[in-house]
Design a protein around this nucleic acid. Sequence first.
DNA 1: GTTAGCACTCTTAAGAAACGAGTGCTAACA
DNA 2: TGTTAGCACTCGTTTCTTAAGAGTGCTAAC
Lengths: 340, 340
Amino acid sequence: MDLDERKRKILHAIIQTYLETGEPVGSRTISKYSDLKLSSATIRNEMSDLEEMGYIIQPHTSAGRIPSDKGYRLYVDHLMQEKEREVTELKELMIQRTDKLEQVLKRVVKVLANNTNYATMISAPQYHQNKLKFIQLSRVDEHQILAVIVAEGNVIRNKLIPLCEELDTETILKLNILLNTMLNGKTIAEINLQMISSMKEQAGIHSNIISDVVDAVAEAIHSDEGMEIYTGGATNIFRYPELSDNGKASELIQTLEEKQMLAELVTETLNKEDKGIQVYIGSESPIQSMKDCSVVTATYELGQGLQGTIGIIGPKRMDYENVMSTLKTLMDQLDDVFHK
Amino acid sequence: MDLDERKRKILHAIIQTYLETGEPVGSRTISKYSDLKLSSATIRNEMSDLEEMGYIIQPHTSAGRIPSDKGYRLYVDHLMQEKEREVTELKELMIQRTDKLEQVLKRVVKVLANNTNYATMISAPQYHQNKLKFIQLSRVDEHQILAVIVAEGNVIRNKLIPLCEELDTETILKLNILLNTMLNGKTIAEINLQMISSMKEQAGIHSNIISDVVDAVAEAIHSDEGMEIYTGGATNIFRYPELSDNGKASELIQTLEEKQMLAELVTETLNKEDKGIQVYIGSESPIQSMKDCSVVTATYELGQGLQGTIGIIGPKRMDYENVMSTLKTLMDQLDDVFHK
DNA sequence: GTTAGCACTCTTAAGAAACGAGTGCTAACA
DNA sequence: TGTTAGCACTCGTTTCTTAAGAGTGCTAAC
């Protein structure tokens, strides 16, 4: 069977109506409220075809039709091709310049959740590919020194290093120079055991104590502590009856709260070749508990190799058009903020 | 009317039964399953009295009784007087020593939520009273320097300061000395405008540029950014039907997500003279959306004046006994961790 | 190819009836 | 005087029935 222009139009009308109402839509509704000038009977015939082709589903015999995952997919793909709309919505104002990335990310999920009325998430970039810019050791008191590590994108890490033996100022200075010489400009992934042992060697007589320091710095740099993920608007879930039923809401909110599962989604997104906007409909999503949802993700870039993922989680009858253009706008603004 | 020993026992039995089942409890249940050896009729009479006295409530004519806020209050106060039980549960193992406070707090809410099956929250201490230990400025690149501020309790703050004019190493060194001399040992609350202007004066010729630096440091120190609050186990709410009804769950989870409201609770708790465990039953809580919950809070101390609040949010039929002793144990362990 | 009409299906809402948990009251008992 | 058994009564919950309504599929006519 062929998906001709008319079928396509009818499908479009069905999906749009369903997005608005959340109720199964019947032939009569389409006949009346679309500009197709067809009777309900004709629509019925076409709908019957569309169902056979798998684009729509009938929840039960005497109900209207709702889009299937396949139907949504067609709709979304179609939207993708359309010119990106000139949307404003998110005022630049909202994202005030901050030098604390965490603050920005937290604000983003909040703003995004408020604007879309869906649940949102954002992952902080992972720093494997990030170049070290600057390392500084300072003596805090007799028993510990502080290591401050600054990387590209002004990412800052602190690490307190306990000492059993006191280090004099000169040694610390020497260590500072050593660390900076060896490590500046390197990406975190590039720092390997060989390098570390080479540094220990160069530290010479202080090797014992210094060993601790270098180890601690390396640990601080590598410390992944899993992926940082922020979420927002979880309770928007309750706006959509089809998601707030039974244990679904609970399960979903738990997924958002635990954050662990979301990491999978982030990994999946970042591994895609196409760095643009991705849409996971229902069971397309790698997260089991989101099989009744749609997830729209986008990748943002903070610097070279410094990428994170933004996600919007909502019902399958998500307002894809709005979500996608909102995301696009947001991406542009984030670019502005990060590459000020 | 007098609340004699027998009434007290019956009330106790009613509350305990209700805590277990969550269902209104009838006279027959008490008669059968308590060791009072009284017939249901007698219990009925007593229950009628207890209701008149306001300790229990009848949701509707033909239902059993449930405890009123006043009833819970009596029960809790009674528990408070009892010797603190020897509970273990939370193994020290769970709280591994970390020098990142944030990590510890996040872990605490998670562990606590898993152990109690209620929602949990914890506030990071507020640093007004905290003494500065160490300040370090370092040059990151031509356009910015990094200020690292370490306070008592090893609380670390970073602040990137943009520069319009380049600062040479010597000036930075001088500034470092100035800042440390002036500010070390001071509490954050003690740093006032007068002090800052005095520092600017001493900076002499560099005053212009330095002014920026000092301002930025002051800002970083004072930057409150509201109270940091972590929550966990929000979805435990769904375990209790009386909370997961209607919009209640949604409202509650939103409160937990927004965190803003929780700050009020923290403030309230910290202002109490009694720094021990507090219990807010129903409308006693300062948070409107928790009028159907009970909230148990405790204050932990990280250093002098460095206090935070831990809270457990659950249904009124919370297992107070367990919660309170778990909290007590946790407090002890936190003390251990912080004052290692 | 399109449409009107109609019988049929199935969900949902509303109402009715049966059930049952629990009470309050009274009268009998120790 | 306190305790208990018994019973009528209340009221929420469950189950069943019925009616309404939305929507379809099919057929026949245009």
